[in-house]
Amino acid sequence: MIKVGVVGGTGYTGVELLRLLVAHPSCELVAITSRAESGKAVADLFPNLRGLTDLSFVAPDAAQLGECDLVFFATPNGVAMTQVPELVAGGVRVIDLAADFRIADQAVWEQWYGMRHACPELLPEAVYGLPELNRQAIREARLVANPGCYPTAVALGFLPLIEDGLVACDFLVADTKSGVSGAGRSANVAMLMGEMGESFKAYAIPGHRHQPEIRQTLSRVSDEPVGLTFVPHLVPMIRGIEATLYARLTDRSVDLQALFEKRYRQDCFVDIMPPGSHPETRSVKGANHCRIAVHSPREGDVVVVSSVIDNLVKGAAGQAVQNMNLMFDLNEDCGLNQVALLP
């Protein structure tokens, strides 16, 4: 059994991670930390876990975490980087679900996150945890940077086109929409039902922290500079991301459906929908799947890709468990075969 610790188990991502781990056949949860809730039974805070774990939250303790095989960080940005060096040096493998290790360039990271990086020496070692792109490197990694939710949906939609050099990379457009759980569990007036219910808006148009992460991922498979327009939107639902992606084709003769089906044939959590499909966020609710449809409207030179994920599963906790499976030589889908919830 893999002895697992979870640092920061009280947010939406944290409880989603716990939901998956308590049912995982190869995991033993040994520590779930929270300074604010220390001493409180996990199932008292999250009643969906009643009967599945008898653990209580504990304050972070380096010695206890050091006895784990793997530690997940489901903490705010800037927390993991202060604790990871000691854990990694002690032989503990780490998956960070926040952004501390996602961007390889220290200066770029500090510019977008507004703080100094506490352990820049680990940035070159951190493996970006998108299995469909970095599967082998993840298997061997000591430190995995779990991708952001928007970057997961966007990258999986664009990758086949860019890898094959089929689109002009100087002008890519990602028009994305997310449910409110992506904003976290902390109190926020803007997230109240009376504020965002029956409404729909774009936000962070001048610049969003996920933009450099997306550009970095796409640049690694592109032979030319990547120009990305990324506009996120907030929609009045709890879970889900839909990314509508636009690019200009450089070769209109390619069978795009066949291209996407071939690219993801070996990827158990990417589902390429039949021609003419329009993926729905509800089709992935609670599941670790990304469903994708590719279109070429009116047979023109613009390709449109629709990509949907559950932001808390394939966009966060599920992908983290997928990475854990790879790191410990388990079947990639181990503990991740949940069927999406309908309605």
Rank of each mutant, 00 (worst) to 15 (best):
E195V: 14
C119F: 00
D164Y: 06
E121S: 08
P76N: 07
G194V: 01
A187P: 03
S56T: 11
N288C: 15
V4G: 04
V167L: 10
V127I: 14
G335T: 09
H24L: 12
L330M: 12
L259M: 10
A258H: 10
E16F: 01
A31H: 05
D100R: 02
A74D: 01
S307H: 06
V226P: 05
L259C: 10
G335N: 10
R265C: 10
A340C: 10
L228C: 03
C149Q: 10
A174V: 07
C68F: 05
R19A: 07
E125L: 07
G197H: 10
Q111H: 14
N188T: 05
P131R: 02
A43P: 05
V304Q: 14
Q106A: 14
Y264A: 08
M273N: 02
V304T: 11
G66H: 05
R220Q: 15
R19P: 00
L20C: 11
A41C: 13
F269C: 11
D271W: 06
C169T: 15
L245W: 04
L245P: 15
R298C: 10
V144Y: 06
F72E: 05
P76Y: 07
T82E: 14
G318H: 08
F230Q: 09
F269A: 04
E16D: 05
A187M: 10
D61N: 15
S277A: 15
R298M: 11
V92R: 05
A98Q: 03
V339H: 07
I238E: 14
M324D: 01
N311C: 13
G182A: 09
E37F: 08
L130S: 06
V7P: 01
C119Q: 03
G5W: 05
S219R: 01
A59Q: 13
Q322A: 12
F328C: 08
L256T: 00
K285D: 14
D54W: 04
F46N: 03
V108E: 15
P25Y: 04
S307Y: 07
R185S: 15
Q83K: 12
E110A: 03
G90R: 13
E280F: 05
A141Q: 00
G197L: 10
F46M: 08
R50H: 03
T10I: 12
V127A: 07
P212I: 05
A316K: 02
L312N: 02
A63F: 04
H289P: 00
T13A: 15
Y128F: 15
L172I: 09
I138K: 02
F46L: 08
V84T: 13
D255N: 15
T82C: 07
R35P: 00
V22K: 01
G197A: 14
L18N: 03
N311S: 14
L159I: 13
N337I: 05
D223Y: 01
A23P: 01
L341E: 12
A258Y: 02
I205M: 12
N288H: 06
F158I: 09
V294F: 08
G78T: 08
A317R: 00
G5V: 05
G227I: 08
V173Q: 13
E163I: 04
V313K: 00
P275L: 10
W112C: 09
C149L: 07
M237N: 06
A247G: 11
T10N: 12
V304N: 07
L234V: 11
A62W: 00
E86H: 08
D100G: 11
S186D: 12
G9L: 11
Q83G: 13
L70N: 00
V4T: 12
E280D: 13
T10H: 12
P47S: 07
L342R: 13
D105L: 08
E132P: 04
